[in-house]
Computed example of a mutant assay.
Amino acid sequence: MITVNIMDAAMTYSKESGYVGRVHFSVEGHTHDYEITLHSKRGTEWGYGLFFLNQSGKEEQLEEVEDELEENDELFDQLVQAAKDKLAPK
Rank of each mutant, 00 (worst) to 15 (best):
N54W: 14
D67T: 09
D67M: 12
F52T: 12
S56K: 12
K15F: 15
S40D: 15
D33Q: 13
G21Q: 01
F25P: 01
S56L: 12
Y34A: 04
T12H: 00
H39A: 02
D33P: 10
T37C: 05
E64R: 10
K58Y: 08
E60T: 08
E63L: 14
V27R: 00
V27A: 04
D33T: 02
E59F: 14
Q61A: 12
E68R: 04
E28G: 13
L62A: 06
D33F: 12
S17N: 06
Y19Q: 01
V23D: 03
E63W: 10
E45S: 11
E35S: 04
K58H: 10
V20C: 07
F52M: 08
H30W: 11
T12Y: 00
T12D: 05
G57R: 01
G47V: 05
Y48W: 15
T37K: 14
D33Y: 08
T12N: 00
N54I: 06
R22E: 05
E68C: 08
V27H: 00
H32D: 11
T44A: 10
S26V: 01
L62D: 06
G21I: 02
H30F: 13
G47C: 01
Y19G: 00
L38R: 04
L38A: 11
G43Y: 15
F25I: 06
E16G: 03
S17G: 12
R22A: 04
V65R: 07
L50A: 09
T31N: 14
K58G: 03
E60C: 05
V23K: 01
N54K: 10
D67A: 14
H39T: 13
H24F: 11
N54L: 15
Q61M: 10
F52C: 14
D67H: 13
E35I: 08
K58L: 13
G47M: 00
T44W: 14
H30L: 03
G57P: 00
G21M: 00
V65C: 08
G21W: 01
D67F: 07
E28V: 12
E63K: 05
V27E: 00
T37D: 01
S40I: 15
R42S: 10
S56G: 07
V27W: 04
E59A: 09
Y13G: 02
G49F: 15
R42N: 10
F25R: 04
K41P: 04
D67G: 07
Y13A: 06
T37P: 04
E35M: 10
G21R: 01
G21C: 09
V20E: 00
L38T: 02
Q55D: 09
Q61H: 14
Y34F: 15
H39K: 08
Y19C: 00
